[in-house]
Structure formats: structure tokens, C-alpha cells
Amino acid sequence: MEILKHVVMDHFAQRRNWLTNIEVRVKLFYIGIGLVLNILSNDITLPLLFFVTSLILLMTIKVSFLTLGLRMMMPFLFGIFIMIIMGLHKGETVVLSGTLFGYELAFKKEGLQIGLLLFTKVAGGVMLMLLLSFTTTITKICMAARWMKMPETLIEVLSFVYRYLFLLIEETETMMSSQRSRLGYVTWFKTIKSFGSLGGMLIIRSITRAESAHVAMVSRGYDGGRVLTVQLNPLVRSDYALFLSCGVLLTFLSYLGFFW
């Protein structure tokens, strides 16, 4: 269950620093624009710019290279995989060829170039997402989603899932260590069987807990309305200044020829 520990990276967003203090709607606006420009870019400069800028910003709030490296590992591997797929399927100029298990393989220059562009887009895009998740709590994202008139039901389910995720992770880890002490993971079949009963137990616990959560909510005045009652503060002058600076930045980048 090691991977679950990574879920608890919300604690970075809970800290108070200059990036977490920025209004959530401003952050979402910047990240959103960044992600769109990232997938629209035709050369590697802009994705690399996003990657480096986000990295520097995260460094300023003391996020370690190791933490970032762990998050970036899987996307990077995926990027390499895509580079190979593109190298094999796109373009004409063969740079490397051979057979593997009787299968003809030929890497083409143009395909590898497209693959490299996609790789940098992965790096830039993922780093932008990490910039958001390391500096914004899910509660704030939910509040911003409501401000953007996203369906209330979706926001409520998201809040519930996130609220109870940590609780269920803890319970699962306790159950797993009990199973382990009773030799529940010594063979492959025993492992699968243990996971099966663990999965079953998780369903039972979640449903029992849902019933008691609902009773508790009703006793606290819940009548099927909003779960999230906190509202975002109105935007202030500094937030508008940040919105405006985005426009100035885009014009500047456009002048430098980043987009066409």
C-alpha cells in the first residue's frame, strides 16, 4: 500500500506560504491557460519553460527534488513509451532498425522528434499540475468548482470521497498488517484471497460508515442540501492584478513568437 502514502501529499497544500496564499481562482486560471498552451505548442520551448518555471516556483516553497522525482517518475516513463511508439509509427527517415522476436522495428527521425515534443509536453504539463496540487487543497478546489457553477452533486461526491479516503486507507493498512501476521500473504493464492476478503471488508465498512455518517449529518441539520458550506471570499484588487498580468504575459510571449 506504499503508493497510498503519496496520496497524503495534501500536507504541502495545508502549509502557509506565498503560493498557497494566492487566490485559488487565480491559480486555476493560470494553470488552466498553461495546460492549454502546453498542448497547443508546436516546439519544445514553451513546455520546457513551463517545466522550469513550475520547478523553480516549487523550489521556493521548499518541495524537495526527491518528492518531485517520485511524482514525475511514472509520467516520464509514459513519455518515453510514447516517444518509442511515435518513433516506430511516424515519419520516413529510418535512423535505427532491426528485428525483435521476429518483429520488424524501425525508428524514424520525424517520429522521434514528435515523440520528444510529446515528452517535453508531459514534463511541462505534469509539473504545472503538481504546482497546483502542492499549493491548493481539495477543499479550495471544490469551492472554486462551485463558484464556476460545476454541478453540486459532483462536488459533494468529490468531497465525500476525499474526506473518507484517508480513513479507509488507515483501516485497510491495519487490516493488512493483521492479515500479514496471520500469514495471509505467504503464497500468491493466499495473497489474492486476503485481498478478496480485504476488498469485501472495505465494502462492508464503507457502507456501515455511510449509514452512520448520514445519521450524524441529519442530526447536524443536513437536509440533502450542500455539504460544503464555506464560500470563497470576493476577488480583491491584487487578484485582478494577477489576472491582468496573465494577459500581459501572454502578449509578451506571443510577441516573442512562442505561439506561432
Binding site: 459533494e156 465525500f160 470521497v161 473518507y164 465494502i203 465498512r205 455518517a213
Partner: peptide
């Protein structure tokens, strides 16, 4: 709704 949220969280852990 709590049921969906909790089963969702359970499936996420699963």
C-alpha cells in the same frame, strides 16, 4: 450520496 462517496473511496483504495 454518503453511500456513493464512501463506496467510491473504498473502490479507490481497492
Amino acid at each position: 450520496l454518503p453511500l456513493v462517496g464512501l463506496v467510491g473511496a473504498a473502490v479507490f483504495v481497492f
